[in-house]
Design a protein around this nucleic acid. Structure first.
Lengths: 212, 212
DNA sequence: TTGACACCTTACTGACCGGTAAGTAGAGTC
DNA sequence: GACTCTACTTACCGGTCAGTAAGGTGTCAA
């Protein structure tokens, strides 16, 4: 049977998938190799075979995330800024439904206890996310679809910080995300048109990635 | 000597003070009784004498924080909304300078790994902080000093989420807080007047609390 | 048929974790 | 002077942590 073979080759990816879930729901310090090995039905040392140190696993998770995020951006390069904003919001909803927070959130919250390698690649990831947020509002202003006071750099940074904070606070107050999204649309001057775009369709989760 | 006596009675407070620093810089899961005992020059069991379980220590920290925050609010009840906003910003700056994040930030980030008692009082604390933020922008609109689209509830929630997110992201990007503060002032329509209020004086840290 | 290799397992280590039991020093009370 | 209480200490517990060493097994190529 080839199924046996498939299951074997899958292990590394399965480790990453489960580790990612654990990272985003519990944080890096609060999950262990035991959590993963128990979840996958393998032994602890099997994980060390693929990721010698926990640090290696952490770095691999962030790197995979960066690749996935780059594809997420590329996939909707052609969309209008307001549409891209809604995709960003949908991403946030997806995390919330899974009872997770966004990677930049746990990385920055736990930063001082993380190994240096993770801090470094984490910094790159956060910079990329902020740059995307800034890009959206900058083009939104440029094409006239968004109106707001202040600078695109400030507005992008605010948007990024806001969504990260809202995703965390939503664990205490489930209305936080909806409330903040609505307010952000208002502040960007696109309240009317996006009111309908709120609950439309689409399961674009950015969750594929079969590579590595 | 009475100094001996003072030093004795101080232990509980010293434990709380050090634990608070550790909580805000490392998170609840990433500090241990050993960190505290080593820092204070006492034995591990001495901490267990004052706080039988780590959960008790965590709850005590949050409760103390709620009392302190209540006093912080009360102390500036007479100020104008825009002034209160600046105090809120100053609070954030203080955390940043100490390489800490705000309590609501770690509590929500680590929520799913925290004991139930901590989750409960944490929820109360977060609700109080949000209510304060909402109150500021609601009164700001009412007295005409602030102008913004959307609702006070939305704007307050956004403000709270934004500052929490910015404080965390500032660990990667030191400009995050300043950038977000500036943008928030713009969005509230009080950019000009507060530009000068940015780097003024004052060491109002809300850091006293000798009780308990 | 042999050897190399990928992918595991079994079995273990030392460090650290939160937590407990029992004892003790000193101060205050009767 | 015995008693009690607070505020610790010493000494220990079982559990969990990341990490390692050595061995086994199936696959594939020469």
């Amino acid at each position: 049977m080839k199924a046996e073979n498939d299951a074997r080759g899958d292990t590394r990816r399965k480790i990453l998938d489960l580790a990612e879930t654990l990272l985003l729901s519990r944080g890096f310090n609060a999950f262990s190799y035991q959590h993963i090995s128990a979840g996958l039905g393998v032994r602890n040392a099997a994980i060390h075979y693929h990721f010698a140190r926990k640090t290696d696993l952490g770095v691999a998770l962030i790197e995979r995330y960066r690749r996935r995020f780059a594809r997420f951006i590329a996939a909707q390069a052609g969309l209008a800024p307001a549409e891209q904003l809604e995709r960003y919001f949908m991403l946030t909803d997806t995390y919330f439904q899974r009872q997770q927070i966004c990677p930049s959130g746990i990385l920055s919250a736990e930063l001082q206890t993380l190994p240096a390698e993770m801090q470094q690649v984490g910094g790159l990831f956060v910079a990329e996310m902020r740059a995307w947020a800034v890009d959206i509002v900058a083009r939104g202003r440029a094409d006239g679809s968004m109106q707001y006071a202040g600078s695109p750099a400030g507005m992008g940074a605010l948007m990024f910080a806001t969504m990260q904070g809202a995703l965390q606070l939503a664990r205490f107050d489930e209305d936080a995300i909806g409330s903040v999204k609505r307010q952000l649309r208002q502040l960007l001057g696109l309240a009317a048109e996006a009111a309908g775009a709120n609950n439309t369709n689409s399961t674009a989760t950015t969750h594929e990635e079969s590579q590595q």
